[in-house]
Simulated assay, not measured.
Amino acid sequence: MSDDLPQEQITHAPLAGVIGMPIAHSRSPRLHGHWLRRYGINGHYIPLPVMPEHLAEVLRSLPRAGFVGVNVTIPHKEAALTLADVVTDRAALIGAANTLIFRPDGKIHADNTDGYGFIANLRQHAPDWVPAWGPAAVIGAGGAARAVVASLLDSGVTEIRITNRTRVRSEQIRAEFGARVVVYDWAQAGNMLEGAGTVVNATALGMTGKQPLRVPLDALSPDALVTDLVYTPLKTPFLAEAEARGCQIVDGLGMLLHQAAPGFERWFGQRPEVDDEVRRVVLE
C-alpha cells in the first residue's frame, strides 16, 4: 500500500487473513494478495500465527482491528467452529470451519468451503467426470477427508469406501454420514480400489517431507479419476503411478484455490477467477 494514500482510505481498507500455527508456509497470503492486486481492491490479507490457547481472544478482537474475516487452518478448524455464533449446515456436517466472516452485528459466521473447493477443482480439470461412474475410494479420515466425503455424497456418489490407519476415525465418519460409507481396514486399502470410479488421497502421505503413501494400485481401473489433496509436490508419486496406469489425474492445488474464492468474495465484494495465472503465482 502506498504511503501517500489519504488517511481515511487507509483506515477503511478491509483486512482479512489466515490463522494457524505454524502459518509461515501458507500460500494463502500470496493467493489473496494476487487477487487484491488483480481487482484493484484496497485491502490486505495477513498471515496470523496464533496459539490454540489464544484463539478465542484473537477472534473476538480482530473485528475491532478492522478485520472482515479470516481463513482458519491447522490446528484451529474444529475450535473455530465451536467459537462461532452462526454455523452453516456444511460446516456443521463436516465438524470444522475454514472460513469465518465477521458480521456487522458482531457475530462470527463460520463456513467450510473445503468440499466446495474439492468439487470445483474436479469440475475444472476433469469436466467429463461423472460422480455416478462408480464408488469413490477415500484414503484418510481427518478433517479434509470429512469435507471430501460430504461433497462426494452431495454430488451423487452412491458409495464411499474409506480407509484410515486408525480405523476408529473411519468408523466415526460412517456413523455420521450413514450407510453409503463402507469402512475398509488399512491393510485392505488396495482392495477398495477395485471398481472405484473416483479415488482420493486425503492424507498428508506423499507430501514433501512426509512418508510416502504406500497403497498398492494393482486393482485400480484405468477408467478411474484419481486426485490427491497434496500439492507439494504438484504431481505426487501416487498421482504419477495412477497416471502411468492410464488414469486421469487431478492435482490438489486447485482445491486450495477454489476453497479460497467464496471467502474472498464475502470479505472484499468480488468473486475471483481461478485460472492458470493464479496457479502460476501461487507456485512461484
Rank of each mutant, 00 (worst) to 15 (best):
Q7A: 15
I10T: 09
H12S: 12
H12M: 11
P14I: 10
P22C: 05
I23A: 02
S26P: 03
S28I: 12
P29F: 10
L31S: 07
H32L: 12
R37M: 11
R37W: 06
I41H: 13
N42D: 13
Y45S: 07
I46Y: 06
I46D: 01
L48S: 09
L48Q: 06
P52Y: 01
H54L: 10
L59Y: 11
R60N: 06
R64G: 13
G66C: 07
F67G: 09
G69H: 12
V70S: 00
T73E: 05
P75K: 11
H76G: 06
K77N: 12
E78D: 01
A79W: 01
A84L: 06
D85C: 04
D85G: 13
V87L: 01
L93V: 10
G95F: 08
A97T: 12
A97Y: 04
N98L: 09
T99I: 01
F102L: 08
P104D: 15
P104L: 06
K107E: 13
K107W: 00
K107A: 14
H109W: 14
N112V: 01
D114R: 04
D114G: 02
G117R: 08
L122S: 11
L122E: 10
L122Q: 12
R123K: 15
W129F: 10
W129A: 09
A137C: 07
